[in-house]
Simulated assay, not measured.
Amino acid sequence: MKKLVLAAALTAAASTAFAGAPADPVIEAPVIVEETTGSSGGWVLPILLLVVVAAALAD
């Protein structure tokens, strides 16, 4: 009878040790660095300027 009570006590103690879930690991998001470029892209502004000059000379 003593062994049965001891086994029940150890089982109860062991089950409470695993009662909670472990804490979720903290995972930091990776840092993404992108190079910024102008909205003109380097070729739109000269073409636009050429069109404006051509329109002014056409008058």
Rank of each mutant, 00 (worst) to 15 (best):
A12E: 03
A12L: 15
A12N: 05
A12G: 14
A13Q: 00
A14M: 08
S15H: 08
S15P: 02
S15K: 04
T16M: 05
T16G: 02
T16W: 10
T16Y: 10
T16Q: 04
A17Q: 07
A17S: 14
A17P: 04
A17Y: 14
F18H: 10
F18S: 11
F18L: 07
F18C: 08
F18P: 05
A19N: 02
G20W: 06
G20Q: 05
G20P: 01
G20V: 04
A21C: 01
A21H: 05
A21Y: 05
A21D: 06
P22Q: 12
P22W: 13
A23K: 05
A23C: 04
D24T: 14
D24N: 11
P25W: 00
P25G: 00
P25M: 00
P25F: 00
P25N: 00
P25C: 00
V26D: 05
V26G: 00
I27F: 05
I27V: 15
I27P: 01
I27R: 04
E28F: 10
E28D: 11
E28M: 09
E28G: 06
E28T: 11
A29I: 06
A29H: 15
A29F: 15
A29K: 15
P30Y: 07
P30V: 03
P30L: 08
P30H: 09
P30I: 07
P30W: 08
V31C: 03
V31P: 01
V31F: 14
V31Y: 04
V31H: 07
V31Q: 12
I32K: 15
I32A: 15
I32S: 13
I32F: 14
V33C: 14
V33L: 06
V33Y: 13
V33Q: 12
V33D: 14
V33K: 11
E34F: 12
E34H: 12
E34N: 13
E34K: 15
E35P: 05
E35I: 10
E35W: 09
E35N: 09
T36R: 12
T36S: 08
T37R: 11
T37I: 02
T37A: 07
G38F: 08
S39F: 11
S39D: 07
S39P: 05
S39Y: 06
S40G: 13
S40F: 08
G41C: 01
G41D: 01
W43L: 11
W43R: 02
W43E: 10
V44Y: 02
V44G: 03
L45M: 13
L45W: 12
L45P: 03
